[in-house]
Design a protein around this nucleic acid. Structure first.
Lengths: 240, 240
DNA sequence: GGCCATCAGTTGTGATTCCAACTTTACTCT
DNA sequence: AGAGTAAAGTTGGAATCACAACTGATGGCC
């Protein structure tokens, strides 16, 4: 069986096994293209393809001139969503957090308009934030709020505070989480290696049944994980 | 600028732009290898490589004999975490949910032991669940609980219920979310196309400061998104 | 010893060619 | 007309060769 499988898959699977089983520790060198052709008796194309696939999967990383090595996957830093702060999370692991904030006005894109339940192209206050850890950009966020709430305070990191001051009582936050391929801009700004996906969090702040602010947060999958703490489900329906 | 960029990137970026801008609608045919070589004046290697990259990103899908087409990305179905059910979510979109449950005993792996705060290799009850939507496997879950809590009920979908019956009061749930490349078993069972990542949710049920159950839930990124509903952060610290 | 230049090895990219398996279309024959 | 067949086009896999840019190590020179 598995005899008619593509040749390069044999190489991929053997190396992947060695990596996941710990036989090849992080940092360990991977056989070069030439060595693979000899060891596995495959052509250069297959060897190259195998290495590309493993790199794409994030298991190994290649540098021109040096070779491929098993990628050391640093522990994924926990980001405590909604309740906590980027800065708190970073301080907890000894990083120096900073962020750039730019605010301007714009017309709501159709999807943003739906999320904010306003008419498309309504004016919104748009805030772009680049979060940095020790100077390196590690997260992006774009926040939108109907312009009516904005009072000129440009410290968007205090949304709830300000909105609270405007007589709106925030009741809950919803977060929609999915992973996707980064857009060119994103992999550029965040300096993402090839193959790394991003977590996309669409967050909306609600005051009763009215959305008052929504934002898109882009987080590299290879550095962070999201942590949610929720009240236990009531006795009746704990499924999944 | 961008003159020294790899040739295949020019093709990738042009096609990607056309797709994301909606110029090429889902289902629309992508130029074939030969057509690309002519239209963009590149070699066959570059054309093929460009198509491979786009396929890897999930933007297009190729079939032997037929060609590449823009992938129609169905809306990502929302999974309401922790509060709701797989079955509720599926019924909401007209799918017929089912699941397979298999329970056995095992020794706790090191990481599981840490999560349950028990000694490594302690006996645990392991439950594997395959969730299906209209018969197709769409989610995997493996649940672990210290064997001491198990009373023989094999309906693991009622964890909290049973644990509650054992005099344990569940207080909260934590979920750690990250995306990664599927393991071979996972892409096999879930029948994942190449390039699709999975969301990995490490969920732990707590009774006070004691973990009583932990599970790994594997969710395909191309079909689902997670939805969390959280209480609004208190006035003082709404950051991020 | 310390510094610098050279060189072999490696990756990323690319061209060219070939083939098997498959799909779609067109055509021929009954 | 309908059925079966042939041909053309497409993807995915693979081999081979080539080259620029880069790295690490070696060895020679001061």
């Amino acid at each position: 069986m598995a005899n008619s499988d593509p040749v390069y898959l044999r190489v991929v699977e053997d190396l992947r096994r060695q990596i996941t089983e710990g036989l090849l520790q992080p940092g360990a060198p991977i056989p070069s293209r030439h060595q693979i052709t000899r060891k596995y008796g495959v052509g250069e194309t297959a060897a190259r393809h195998a290495l590309r696939v493993l790199a794409q999967e994030g298991l190994i990383i290649g540098r021109v001139g040096s070779g491929h090595r098993v990628r050391q996957r640093p522990d994924l830093l926990p980001l405590h969503r909604a309740q906590a702060h980027f800065s708190t999370d970073m301080h907890a692991v000894g990083r120096r957090p900073t962020c750039d904030v730019k605010t301007d006005s714009a017309e709501a894109r159709p999807d943003i308009a739906v999320r904010l339940r306003i008419a498309a192209q309504s004016p919104v206050t748009r805030t772009r934030i680049v979060y940095r850890s020790d100077g390196k950009p590690v997260q992006l966020a774009v926040s939108y709020e109907p312009i009516v709430y904005n009072d000129g305070t440009d410290d968007i990191t205090q949304v709830a505070h300000r909105l609270g001051g405007n007589g709106l009582k925030l009741t809950e936050v919803t977060e929609h989480v999915y992973a996707r391929v980064p857009q060119p801009v994103e992999s550029d700004v965040l300096d993402l290696p090839a193959g790394v996906h991003v977590l996309h969090v669409e967050r909306t702040h609600w005051a009763g049944d009215k959305p008052v602010e929504t934002s898109d947060v882009i987080i590299p999958c290879d550095q962070f994980r999201l942590v949610y703490t929720l009240p236990a489900p009531y006795g009746e329906q704990p499924s999944r």
